[in-house]
Amino acid sequence: MSKGILYDATLCIDCKLCERACAEKHGLPYNEAIAAEEKQSAHKLTVVMDKGDKYMRRLCMNCQDPTCASVCPVAALRKTAEGPVTYDASRCIGCRYCMLACPFSVPKYQWNTALPLVQKCDMCADRVAQGLPTACAAACPTGATKFGDRDALIAEAQDRIAKNPEQYVHHIYGLTEVGGTSVLLLSSVPFEEFGYPVHVDNQPLPMLTWHVLSELPQVVTFGAALLGGIWWITSRRQAVAAAEAKSGD
């Protein structure tokens, strides 16, 4: 069963315990200065943003068909059956194509080290594999971040919107975006106000490159045969011309 995270911004109190739990889980430093940073970075994999009394989390969406996993030339990024999109640092060459390609601009880079790696939320893949909730969900005191089966979370989100229609934007962000994501968001303010792209395709982006890449074997076979044929004709014509020139002498 595919797992997911439901973040309901209307329940969030900006306590940032999810940020702290995430840093501890991933062995990253956490202090007041880092808590004040409003941006995801290589040392801050999730962030709670605020606009007045409205809050919104940012974390890796852990897409159902992840763009990052499709573009990675060394398959360092992978979608697991349980839901998390994991990163194998030992494969990474540091090309940053995942950063460019991610529709949510999630992967971040260790810019200030000589041998940098990419960093991103991996939805606590090791905890999830053991049947545990993610560190952020376990730490959340209000239930704003909830871990569970993705299908059950979708049903619950729909239920919450139906019961309090005036309280929510009538959209579960992540239900259909780029073919769906393991992380689902509910909010009372439009998602674009917190920088979430709202004009993303509902089809998984990897199809955009795959429909070109999958044609390449045909292109190569056909092209090579065509070039070989042209060469055969032109060289044959040349041989005939040479023979004619000789007999004409």
Binding site: C72, P73, A75, A76, R91, P206, T209, W210, V212, L213
Partner: peptide, 8 residues
């Protein structure tokens, strides 16, 4: 380390 789905 192959990933044939990747243009890169």
């Amino acid at each position: 380390m192959w990933n044939p789905r990747s243009v890169m």
